[in-house]
Design a protein around this nucleic acid. Structure first.
Lengths: 105, 105
DNA sequence: TGGATATAACAATAATTGTTGATGAGTCAA
DNA sequence: TTGACTCATCAACAATTATTGTTATATCCA
């Protein structure tokens, strides 16, 4: 368990995940690191488009990049996924003795 | 563990979570159900604004509503949070014997 | 060095999402 | 039945995000 993420960081993480293209990218990266050209091939997407989405994912910390010659390899950040798991866990109801409240307004 | 959510559903869930106001709403609902007027009071937000965000959360299945007289009470959907936990889990790297690959392009 | 390759970055535009103020619908109580 | 109250919905507008085509940067190889 980790310190609570700031709300802004949480928003950034969830936003990065709230796009079909980006989820598809993450899914591909589950199998191991891949370079941009493999991704554009596999996803039949314009390079600049994937570059944009990869940047969003990277800025959210969900993926990491590594240059090797002309190629840029992207891979999942396991740590980020774990942070995400904590974050989602923190959304859960806090156990407590039935909060009794009167009428509201 | 549950069947894999469709990508569209995943996008909808993450999108619902990718907003500061909505995360604040969920946080308040952790303490138990609340009516809209309590939420607008506590968050000092315009009623129509919260109504909009509550709708987004409800359509994503993250919260449920219940009418009681003039009041509408909202509460967390525990089931949705659990779905979300599964979803986040499914983002993780699949264990496998080191995938060896040659050059890509 | 010069050309080819892989990718990032940019600018223009399109699409989506959020905010605000106003109106409408349902409920209650006098 | 009327007026007050709670909340949803709508329309207009503002803000953000995504797409596309193009250009810039870095690397490699001949």
């Amino acid at each position: 368990m980790v310190a609570k993420l700031s709300t802004k960081k949480a928003v950034e993480l969830f936003h990065a995940l709230s796009d079909e293209t980006r989820l598809a990218l993450l899914d591909r990266l589950k199998d191991g690191e891949q370079c941009v050209c493999e991704l554009t091939d596999a996803m039949k997407a314009a390079q600049s488009r994937l570059s944009f989405h990869l940047k969003v994912l990277k800025e959210a910390g969900l993926i990491e990049d590594r240059r090797e010659g002309r190629w840029m390899y992207y891979s999942l950040s396991i740590q980020a996924i774990e942070e995400l798991e904590d974050l989602v866990g923190s959304l859960k109801k806090v156990a407590r003795s039935a909060v009794s409240r009167g009428r509201c307004c």
